[in-house]
Structures are given as structure tokens and as C-alpha cells.
């Protein structure tokens, strides 16, 4: 699971949970792999992100990669900033671990890089 995905996921599927965001990450295995740099895409995605959540998530798994805690106002022209954002968003991946709902404490496992957000039939009743 990449951090760009984490930025968009919630646990609001759970009964009684209102926002279910952000999910806490517990990572046992983290992988960093090279992904082709695409500044156009990174510039487009940044306004869609919750930056604070991204920064904290990256920091919590020890991969903030020197990313600033706030967005540079002229980020489109800041290559260094875009490259760091690229790395944190697309290259860092949680391979094994789990996500925790901030309201209920319910955990969702991540196996082989794929988060499992399924509930049990008891939880959807």
C-alpha cells in the first residue's frame, strides 16, 4: 500500500464510525521501490491530498524523506519538493502491517501490500 492510497482510505464503513480518518499505520515491512518520476501527475495530485495526514503517515513509518510538513505555495516549480513528494507518495510502500480505525480501534490487515478493508458479517448487521 502506497501512502497516496492511505491518504484516501477511511473506515467509515464501520457502524458508529463517523469519519474514520485518518487511519493509523502500523508497518512491519516497508519497501521502497523506484517509480518513474512524473511531475505532471504529482502536481495534479497534491491539491487532492490531505498534506498533514500524508506527512504524519510518512513520519510514523520512518519515511518522511525530508518532506516539509506544509505544502510549498509554489510547489509546481519546486523540483526538489516534487521529487520528495513523488518518493513519499509512490515509492514507499507498506508491505505488511495493519491500519487502525481512529474511532473504534478496529484493525485492517495489510498483506503483500494489499489492504483488506472487508468487515465481518457481524459488523455490517
Amino acid at each position: 500500500m502506497k501512502l497516496i492510497t492511505h491518504n484516501m482510505l477511511t473506515s467509515k464503513c464501520l457502524k458508529g464510525v463517523i469519519t474514520g480518518y485518518p487511519l493509523a499505520i502500523t508497518a512491519t515491512v516497508v519497501k521502497v521501490s523506484e517509480v518513474e518520476y512524473n511531475p505532471e501527475f504529482i502536481s495534479r495530485i497534491i491539491p487532492k491530498l490531505d498534506w498533514e495526514v500524508l506527512w504524519k503517515a510518512a513520519d510514523s513509518i520512518g519515511h518522511n524523506e525530508g518532506l516539509p510538513p506544509t505544502i510549498d505555495p509554489k510547489f509546481e516549480d519546486n523540483e526538489e519538493f516534487l521529487r520528495k513528494a513523488h518518493k513519499v507518495l509512490l515509492e514507499v510502500e507498506v508491505e505488511e502491517g495493519y491500519l487502525t480505525c481512529p474511532e473504534s480501534g478496529r484493525q485492517f490487515p495489510i498483506t503483500k501490500g494489499i489492504p483488506n478493508m472487508l468487515l465481518t458479517e457481524a459488523e455490517v448487521q
Binding site: T5, N7, E36, G113
Partner: peptide, 22 residues
């Protein structure tokens, strides 16, 4: 594969994506 983001196991009948994501 540089444009692969992720796949997530989830039931579409329940909400998962953050409000405001377009």
C-alpha cells in the same frame, strides 16, 4: 506499472474512499 497505484480488498456496497476525493 509506474502508473499502478494500489488495489484494495473491499465491498463496494460499503463506503471506503474519503469524502471529497474525485
Amino acid at each position: 506499472d509506474s502508473r499502478y497505484l494500489d488495489v484494495v480488498i473491499s465491498d463496494f456496497s460499503l463506503p471506503m474512499w474519503r469524502e471529497g476525493l474525485k
